[in-house]
């Protein structure tokens, strides 16, 4: 196998590992968002009714299914607005709504409709936001990303198989006379396929090791640096099972390459005799 084939093998393995690692990381981000947002609701009071804040907090604290009620300080609200308005002076002058952060008991959540009704009665214009409208979109995006990652991994695996088969075919065609000689000396198709497999094992192993090392380095850098590079992601992590799956990629790639090489070589050896 040529240097080019070794590099192609390495690239395929690296891409496969990276795509799978990305899909697994997205699954964890998805899960993190679900856990972080599903038990957090926000009550918003119009700035004109800021005086109702303590009354509303008292009502909320008395409701079952609400574990924690926190009045968000105005400074924190300004900090949250800062990235969108880019002007500290403007945020200082703006009339800010009152935000009350609720931690919901996930096992026994309060009725959203009943709570909305109660809040309207306590403070006109009060709104209850369960963050569902935008978290659902984000979660769908994460799920789509994961599905696309798995599909790309499948495409890479298929491409890798076809590449291995094409390489084996090319090598066999180049060595057609040698195969004919081996047949005439009494070699079986299985022996010839085995010889090609042994040759492919050496070069494929080199490619697989190169690809694994490259992908491992990239994954390590991304896991460490992603939170500072990617918005909305506080941390990127992989579970032990994900590491096990990633570790299985080079082993699987090698096994698949050997299987495809043997299968192709065996078929062609039969045809060349």
């Amino acid at each position: 196998m040529s240097t080019l084939s070794v590099l192609v093998t390495g690239l395929m393995v690296a891409l496969g590992i990276l795509v799978l690692a990305g899909a697994a990381a997205l699954r964890h981000v998805d899960s993190e968002w679900r856990h972080a947002l599903v038990d957090r609701w926000t009550v918003e009071l119009d700035s004109a009714h800021a005086a109702d804040a303590d009354h509303v907090v008292g009502i909320l604290q008395s409701q079952s299914g609400i574990g924690e009620v926190r009045l968000v300080p105005p400074d924190e609200i300004r900090r949250l607005l800062q990235p969108w308005l880019h002007d500290a002076a403007l945020t200082a002058e703006l009339p800010l709504p009152v935000l009350i952060d609720l931690k919901i008991d996930r096992t026994h959540p309060p009725s959203e409709a009943a709570l909305t009704q109660l809040l309207s009665a306590a403070s006109p214009g009060a709104k209850l936001d369960d963050h569902g409208s935008w978290t659902r979109d984000l979660l769908r995006l994460a799920e789509a990303g994961e599905a696309i990652g798995l599909a790309i991994f499948g495409a890479i695996a298929l491409t890798a198989m076809l590449t291995v088969a094409a390489t084996a075919r090319a090598r066999l065609a180049v060595n057609a006379q040698e195969i004919e000689l081996l047949h005439s000396l009494g070699a079986s198709d299985g022996y010839i396929a085995g010889q090609f497999q042994a040759g492919a094992l050496r070069s494929t192993s080199i490619g697989v090791v190169i690809g694994t090392v490259i992908a491992g380095a990239v994954v390590a850098v991304l896991l460490k640096g992603a939170p500072s590079m990617i918005p909305f992601i506080s941390q990127l992590r992989l579970a032990p099972i994900d590491w096990a799956v990633l570790a299985a990629v080079p082993v699987g790639a090698l096994a698949l390459a050997m299987l495809v090489t043997r299968w192709t070589a065996y078929g062609l050896a039969r045809r060349l005799s």
Partner: peptide, 14 residues
Amino acid sequence: RRAKMPALRRQIGM
């Protein structure tokens, strides 16, 4: 049978 050919060929030098 094809499977028997290699063994038979090994008994013939060429």
